[in-house]
Computed example of a mutant assay.
Amino acid sequence: MELMIYLAGEIHSNWRQQIKEAAKKQDLPFVFLGPMEDHTRSDNIGEEILGKQPDPVLKDDAASSINNLRTTILLNKADVVIALFGLQYKQWNTTMDAASALALQKPLILIRPKELHHPLKELANKAQVVVETPDQALQALKYIIEA
Rank of each mutant, 00 (worst) to 15 (best):
Glu2Ser: 15
Leu3Gly: 00
Ala8Lys: 00
Ile11Gln: 06
Ile11Cys: 01
His12Ile: 08
Arg16Cys: 09
Ile19Asn: 07
Ile19Lys: 04
Lys20Arg: 15
Lys24Leu: 13
Lys25Thr: 10
Gln26Pro: 02
Leu28Val: 10
Pro29Ala: 11
Pro29Phe: 11
Val31Pro: 01
Gly34Trp: 01
Pro35Met: 10
Pro35Gln: 14
Glu37Lys: 05
Thr40His: 12
Asp43Asn: 14
Asn44Gly: 02
Asn44Phe: 03
Ile49Glu: 06
Gln53Asn: 01
Pro54Tyr: 07
Pro54Gly: 04
Asp55Ala: 09
Val57Leu: 15
Asp60Asn: 15
Ser64Gln: 14
Ile66Leu: 15
Thr71Leu: 06
Thr71Gly: 09
Ala78Thr: 08
Val80Cys: 03
Val80Leu: 13
Val81Cys: 06
Ile82Gly: 04
Leu87Ile: 12
Leu87Ala: 04
Gln88Ile: 02
Lys90Gly: 05
Gln91Glu: 12
Trp92Arg: 12
Trp92Tyr: 11
Asn93Met: 11
Thr95Ile: 10
Met96Glu: 01
Met96Lys: 07
Asp97Ala: 10
Asp97Pro: 08
Ala99Val: 13
Ser100Lys: 13
Ser100Ala: 13
Leu102Met: 11
Ala103Asn: 07
Ala103Cys: 08
Pro107Lys: 03
Leu108Asp: 02
Lys114Trp: 00
Glu115Asn: 09
Glu115Cys: 05
Leu116His: 07
His118Glu: 14
His118Arg: 13
Leu120His: 09
Lys121Ile: 12
Asn125Cys: 04
Asn125Ser: 15
Asn125Gln: 15
Gln128His: 14
Gln128Ala: 14
Glu132Asp: 14
Glu132Arg: 04
Thr133Arg: 03
Thr133Ile: 06
Pro134Val: 07
Asp135Met: 14
Asp135Asn: 09
Asp135Trp: 00
Gln136Glu: 15
Ala137Ser: 08
Ala137Arg: 06
Leu138Glu: 09
Gln139Arg: 14
Ala140Glu: 13
Leu141Tyr: 01
Leu141Asn: 05
Tyr143Asp: 13
Tyr143Val: 14
Ile144Gln: 01
Ile144Lys: 04
Ile145Gly: 00
Glu146Asn: 15
